[in-house]
Design a protein around this nucleic acid. Structure first.
Lengths: 329, 329
DNA sequence: CTGAAAGCGCTAACAA
DNA sequence: TTGTTAGCGCTTTCAG
């Protein structure tokens, strides 16, 4: 690769002038033209490594997520990417597999690469942000929170859980189970709390503990929990799945048992990815994944630009998508 | 962040020695201990930016894909990631939206960041690899090919298309349509060629041109094409979808028309992501996405390590997953 | 085994 | 507006 010095020599200017041309400072038109010409000729691309070292900051933001194969997070990533891209930042996508150790490694890398900031969907509430925060790098958490005082973008999980459940009650279901994620993940227990609240209010005779299953936020987790629920002495007539993959797993098992929705009520928090079901068969409480990514990226860029106001928490609303499912059995 | 000099001072050694400790060169045990101790105390992490500048190469590989929201590519990404990770390399995931301009931008960034190598799923066969290849950076293409002389990992699309079609014939379907991707994308036309070959051989009375639809490799593309096929004077009784998202779109439309598989034959090249259908309803020719990622990453790492043998092309096999679907209508 | 010192390519004072 | 120059933090000869 050609360097700034070679370009300078060819263009008959100083290296500083070449740098200025590429950074939008005041340079006379003739010299700009000469530099551009020389750059083209030498196929010059400025070295980002040198720039990063010198500026102590790279135009890169890290997006750290627990599961790259979950469409919810790829949708979020799209939001982040679009905003970052148009501001001239690259996004490095890091996959933690919900593993705290991997998460810590990636945070170290972000630091050691001098990345401008981090958007983190925490693997759990025990994330260690000490180093990155004391280094003064901005961090925005998404989807879940931590105990640190950072910007966050979350959604109203409790309401989402309530809405999903309420709709099943309204449709006429009377024995509503719930499958949710790990007990120590806030999106999991908050959505379950929403379900519990509606049960208490509308179906007080039900025993929530009997009908609730904690699981992983994965398809096989949904499958296992659904099997378990169907094996109950008095099985449920409907289920709230607290995320997209759990919903897929539950519906798979139901289908295998001949209990196709909407005969068996299914309500999913988060949209069903690539569903082949007819849209009215399942209640979906849509989560604003893309929007969450856009919001987080925007906030992060503001911080990078030097915004120092106190940490903000943005709560995004969810929306009931198909409230019209009618009971057909 | 602490630097190597501060660590050196605290440990009572020279900066060079600190560097050696972190790079596995010969240093006496006492000094190693002193350096480690000092590093811990100062929370020292070596600056990758400086290292990259000095070594003219970063331990980062770029993975450039056309659609991050397609589970096929995220699965591929997982394969790449796992191999890279265990070799101490980070992966930067770049999303081109099948846009050649974005692809070129990302290739420039890879160069300008001194990344060690690139794994590219080309947006089309017109990708421009001139710069990156003349710079001597190794490139492995996956999924699709280019005209450049690089390593590649592809699969046998023609056979996959044949297998998907053949299975429908065997099941008893007699009017088999095909929905495939853009006409200039090799995975699209090769799979369609497989379909055409079986038609010619087993159902020579059919007019392939009437039953073939080129589209985008996206859900809405599958929907449109399927609608179009169903509106034919003499509609098909079955369809081959040449990728996962097309399959989803086609099945959605079929379901809306009351033509649920397996009554209407559906064969998909690439697995149905997060399907809620019963497994026997649809024929799936599974593509080795993860394996492809693993293979590509392994090859790339070999090149990075200095392997200079002539370019290799690895062709991965696909596998028929549910050949047992019986016609039930 | 260890240290001194040069230099990777760029940016930003400072001077002119 | 332009050039000179120091230095970002690391690795790597070269001496010792």
């Amino acid at each position: 690769m050609a360097t700034i010095y070679e370009v300078a020599k060819l263009a008959g200017v100083s290296p500083a002038t070449v740098s200025r041309v590429f950074n939008g400072a005041g340079v006379s038109v003739e010299k700009v033209a000469a530099v551009r010409e020389a750059s083209r000729e030498l196929r010059f691309t400025p070295s980002r490594a040198a720039r990063t070292l010198r500026k102590q900051s790279a135009e890169v933001i890290a997006l750290i997520i627990p599961d790259i194969e979950n469409p919810y997070f790829t949708e979020l990533a799209r939001g982040v990417e679009d905003v970052a891209q148009s501001a001239g930042y690259s996004v490095v996508l890091c996959n933690t597999d919900s593993d705290l150790e991997k998460e810590t490694t990636y945070l170290q890398i972000a630091l050691s690469e001098n990345m401008a900031g981090v958007i983190l969907a925490p693997a759990s509430d025990k994330s260690d942000l000490d180093d990155i925060l004391t280094a003064g790098r901005p961090v925005v958490t998404v989807d879940r929170q931590t105990d640190y005082d950072t910007d966050r973008v979350i959604m109203d999980n409790f309401r989402a859980g309530k809405a999903a459940t309420e709709n099943l009650v309204r449709t006429g279901f009377r024995r509503i189970a719930c499958i949710t994620g790990p007990q120590d993940v806030e999106t999991a227990y908050e959505r379950a709390d929403g379900w519990r609240a509606i049960l208490r209010q509308r179906l007080p005779d039900l025993d929530p503990d009997e009908l609730l299953r904690y699981s992983t936020f994965r398809v096989d987790g949904g499958r296992e929990a659904m099997e378990d629920l169907l094996a109950l002495p008095e099985p449920p007539d409907s289920v709230v799945a607290s995320n997209n993959l759990l919903g897929v797993g539950a519906i798979q098992v139901l289908t295998e048992h001949g209990l196709t929705p909407p005969a068996f009520g299914v309500s999913v928090v988060g949209s069903l990815p690539f569903t082949t079901l007819s849209p009215s068969a399942v209640t979906v409480v849509r989560l604003p994944a893309r929007h969450m990514g856009v919001t987080a990226a925007t906030q992060l860029l503001e911080r990078i630009a030097g915004d120092h106001q106190p940490a903000r928490t943005v709560v995004l609303p969810s929306s009931l998508e198909s409230a019209t499912a009618a009971r057909t059995s």
